[in-house]
Computed example of a mutant assay.
Amino acid sequence: MKKVSVECRNIRLAYGKTEVLKDINLVIEPGEFFALLGPSGSGKSTLLRLIAGFNQQNSGQLLVDGADISHVPPHKRNIGMVFQSYALWPHMSVWDNVAFGLVERRLPKAEIQEKVQSALELVGLEAFATRRPNELSGGQQQRVALARTIVIEPQVLLLDEPLSNLDQKLRVQMRQELLALQRRLGITTIFVTHDQEEAMTTADRMAVMDQGIVQQVGTPANLFDYPCNRFVANFVGTMNMLEGQVQERSANMLQLHIDGVGLLKVPLVDEGSVPEQNRLAASFRPHTVQLESGNMNKGNDARYIWIPGTVIRSEFLGEFTRYEIQCGEKTIIADQSHYSGLPQHTVGAPISIGIEPTQIRLLPI
């Protein structure tokens, strides 16, 4: 099967005066597993349905393998879609559900037999061919929906939150199976989800969307480590934000007066990456900080920026303990890895937070 690219060029979609998609520009590489990540109402499912042909943009182009398919009807696009509800025919057997698209295309019976058998083997359901959907588990129903889609050999596979109806353990198993199947087929796949863990564990790259706008595109690690704005920083993981006023800039140092905390001196590795605004947020992930009991003087420690505080809340989450620490007028979240015998910091205890300068991202407010 030939691997194809999908490209959105300046796509805009509005319902009346309500803009749902605003100037969408994306290039999805041939054979890529690409995720559209965002909250409800961000436009991700609307964009997926537009690629499938169920929505029509007001302006812009949609290209598959370099050809503009903006005005091609859905049934002629050779794009397969797995819906959140699976949309299986309840009165049909698994075999007939999978064969449905091939029967509609009036393929020879021998070819249908061969293709359905291969699709069922791919998803591990060859032993369930005679069962009805209501005799299957949620994970098995999802596999039927996948088999029904891949049996027609689409150029592009679209997945609209296909794991949302499954329990947590099965979701983890199924996302691993989805990725393994995609790798075997090499099919260009676009996966819509509001769950950052699902996107980060499956996608080669992903686009974070909000209010119909693509906020940032990149690999999961790149978006997690180098978010371009506050929305991406907070949506992809948990982020501390210390807002403040820029006091001084130099080639290798920025001094930021944090509201209610005091002066924070942030060494700069790349001055060109620092926003030009006079008010910025010094942001850092909870797991990157160091914790030490007491408010000790750490002024000579060049490795970390130390801030004194008081533990106001703690949550034991198994692999780590999450602390909320009051630092002046700010609350900072800090995660400490847990292992047997490690003493926990008690609520009300003084504590010092060490922030490694290389882990600070300066973001516009």
Rank of each mutant, 00 (worst) to 15 (best):
V6W: 09
R12N: 11
R12E: 09
E19F: 01
D23E: 14
V27P: 00
I28Y: 05
G31L: 05
S42M: 07
K44C: 04
S45Y: 06
T46A: 15
L47D: 08
S59V: 00
Q61H: 11
Q61Y: 04
V64Q: 01
D68N: 14
H71V: 00
P73C: 03
V82P: 05
P90K: 04
S93F: 01
V94Q: 09
D96M: 02
A99S: 05
G101R: 01
E104H: 06
L107D: 00
L107M: 13
L107H: 02
E111L: 03
E111D: 13
S118D: 11
L120D: 00
E121F: 00
G138A: 07
Q141N: 08
T149Q: 03
V156A: 08
L157M: 12
L157H: 07
L158Y: 11
L158F: 09
D160W: 03
E161P: 03
E161K: 11
E161N: 12
D167S: 13
K169V: 07
R183V: 05
R184E: 04
Q196A: 14
R205P: 04
V208A: 13
D210N: 15
G212L: 10
Q216M: 10
F224Y: 15
N229W: 06
N229E: 05
N229T: 02
V232K: 10
N234K: 14
T238L: 07
N240R: 05
Q245Y: 04
V246Q: 13
E248F: 11
A251E: 15
M253H: 10
L254T: 08
L254Q: 06
L256A: 10
E271H: 11
V274F: 09
E276I: 08
R279D: 01
L280S: 06
S293P: 01
M296H: 08
W306G: 12
V311T: 08
V311A: 10
E324H: 15
I325W: 07
C327F: 09
K330D: 05
I333M: 14
S337N: 09
A349V: 02
I355G: 05
L362F: 10
P364A: 13
